[in-house]
């Protein structure tokens, strides 16, 4: 009963079909609605294959022809971060959300929703441009002089590499932001006649004043601990203590619980808190 891949998880509760409820939205600012789909049960599915099957099916539970659900994905190996969504109330990647496991926890249906902290573009696709804009604001890069042949980077301890590697696995998926009570959704309405460039600029000004989120705080930690990155650490610390910086963090510690890459976000935040304090004191004394 418990040996082949199938029987272990099917057990005696193998359903005949899978009921999937999707919170859909046709476009930005439109009213969301729920749609239900029924798929014949198969073992070893994940939520990605469920969405692929819904697309191939082309109709909802009542047999009505409906457009396929829009969603974002790429690698399907939980390394690109694209397919992040809220599944049965929990933010995670669709590729590692295994249907058999979901049905064990909640046999009647699988519920798919877009992340709530980012503006919906369509169905499960949200606009996460803000995450990447924040990486600009915090200068999340090593400011090398050039790309010429100047020999290797500085030698580093194994300890330093291990920490940096942990932080550097952040795939900008947005899970930590979705779970954070301080990270709030910002949806900037377009002005009549405004060009795309103007809109993006205005949107960025607004989002840049809002909380940067745990991922960005950990990235400041990452680049300030890099031997070359440390050379402009003060600029990053200025951003850290500025508007939307570390003082917004309410220490709810949800971020570290939902991070799919198990990045020690709260440890980083604590380290950044100390760095912020020292930096502020230094600034008072103009050091």
């Amino acid at each position: 009963m418990t040996d082949s891949n199938g029987s272990q998880r099917q057990g005696s509760h193998r359903p005949r079909e899978i009921r999937v409820r999707v919170r859909r939205q046709d476009g930005p600012g439109q009213t969301p609605y729920w749609e239900t789909f029924l798929l014949p049960y198969e073992p070893d599915l994940n939520v990605i294959s469920v969405l692929q099957k819904i697309a191939a099916l082309g109709k909802d539970a009542e047999g009505k022809r409906v457009p396929p659900v829009a969603w974002e994905c790429n690698c399907l190996e939980e390394i690109c971060g694209a397919c992040t969504m809220v599944i049965n109330g929990r933010v995670r990647q669709a590729c590692t959300a295994l249907v058999d496991r979901l049905l064990e926890q909640q046999p009647d249906e699988i519920r798919l929703e877009p992340m709530s902290k980012f503006p919906v573009i369509r169905d499960l696709v949200v606009d996460r441009a803000r995450i990447f804009a924040t990486l600009k604001k915090i200068q999340a890069w090593v400011p090398v002089d050039n790309y010429l042949n100047l020999g290797p980077g500085p030698r580093q301890s194994q300890e330093n590499q291990e920490l940096a590697y942990l932080l550097s696995k952040c795939m900008s998926c947005g899970c930590c932001m979705e779970a954070c009570p301080q990270y709030l959704k910002i949806e900037v309405p377009r002005l009549p006649g405004e060009s795309e460039d103007d809109y993006r600029r205005r949107e960025m000004e607004i989002t840049n004043r809002a909380f940067m989120g745990a991922a960005a705080l950990a990235q400041i930690d990452l680049f300030n601990s890099n031997p070359i990155g440390a050379m402009n650490a003060r600029e990053r610390l200025d951003v850290l203590i500025g508007e939307g910086g570390i003082q917004v963090c309410g220490n709810a510690q949800n971020c570290v619980k939902v991070c799919p890459k198990e990045i020690p976000l709260t440890t980083s935040i604590a380290r950044m808190g100390r760095a912020a304090t020292i930096h502020m004191v230094r600034r008072w004394f103009d050091l």
């Binding site: 890069w141 090593v142 090398v144 790309y147 042949n149 100047l150 020999g151 290797p152 980077g153 030698r155 580093q156 301890s157 194994q158 330093n160 590499q161 940096a164 590697y165 550097s168 680049f223 890099n226 070359i228 990155g229």
Partner: peptide
């Protein structure tokens, strides 16, 4: 070898030996 050096300068978290080499 020059490409690895450059990527190292750009901050790639290459695994290290106990002495700190890649």
């Amino acid at each position: 070898p020059r490409i690895i050096d450059l990527m190292d300068r750009l901050g790639v978290t290459f695994n290290r030996t106990p002495e700190g080499f890649r």
